[in-house]
Amino acid sequence: MNPQDTALAACAVIAVYAAIRVALEPDTLRKLPFLNVLSFAVAGSIALILPHPLSLVAAAAYFVGTTLESNAIASTYAGGLDRRE
């Protein structure tokens, strides 16, 4: 196995582990760090699946997007970011 396949296997295993931990966590806000681990693993896998300059931009776009999503979920749950009024 070359290093790329080994790294991809490690990222995939960690992604599955993080998904299991997200599913089993009872508290809503404590799910978000596990979701962050999942998005790290997926962003790494995107760059490892297809080494191309645009996939670098894709990994960065996915990571920034999911971070923004976590940020919005946590802020709305905590009571800030109330844009309705």
């Binding site: 997200v22 978000l32 999942l38 997926v42 999911t66």
Partner: peptide
């Protein structure tokens, strides 16, 4: 919504 994030990932 958090579970939807797993599906998108």
């Amino acid at each position: 919504l958090i579970s939807l994030g797993i599906m998108i990932g």
